[in-house]
């Protein structure tokens, strides 16, 4: 996959920094990993992962022979008739 080149928000940078520490600790500490999988929100918060109000986090573990794919949320649909009133001119090509 090509390099992903789009801006990360400061908040997401902080989350990724915390996530790096959490991942490293889970590799070293099987008890911590079990806590993380059983109670992701409590464990993430305890590790300084910036939490968002109203957002619950799920953590899954990839193991050899298994990979987790994440479905993005269903996006907003786009309709031309919903935006046509934005112009103060009648289009003539």
């Amino acid at each position: 996959m090509a390099d992903i080149q789009y801006p990360l928000s400061a908040d997401r940078v902080h989350q990724l920094l915390a996530w790096k520490r959490i991942v490293a600790r889970a590799w070293l500490d099987s008890s911590f990993k079990a806590d993380l999988l059983a109670d992701p929100n409590g464990t993430l918060a305890a590790m300084g992962f910036p939490m968002h109000d109203g957002v619950s986090y799920c953590v899954a573990e990839d193991v050899p022979g298994q990979q987790t794919l994440v479905l993005p949320p269903a996006p907003d649909s786009l309709k031309v008739d919903g935006v046509a009133g934005n112009a103060d001119a009648d289009p003539g090509f």
Binding site: L8, L69, S77
Partner: peptide, 29 residues
């Protein structure tokens, strides 16, 4: 836009926000 993609099928079009940090982001390329 840098973080926005229009995705279309025969059923319609959608406004998808790219998911920074997701290596499986399907529409970054």
């Amino acid at each position: 836009a840098p973080d926005r993609v229009v995705v279309a099928t025969s059923a319609g079009a959608w406004h998808h926000r790219l998911r920074p940090g997701d290596p499986w982001e399907a529409f970054a390329e």
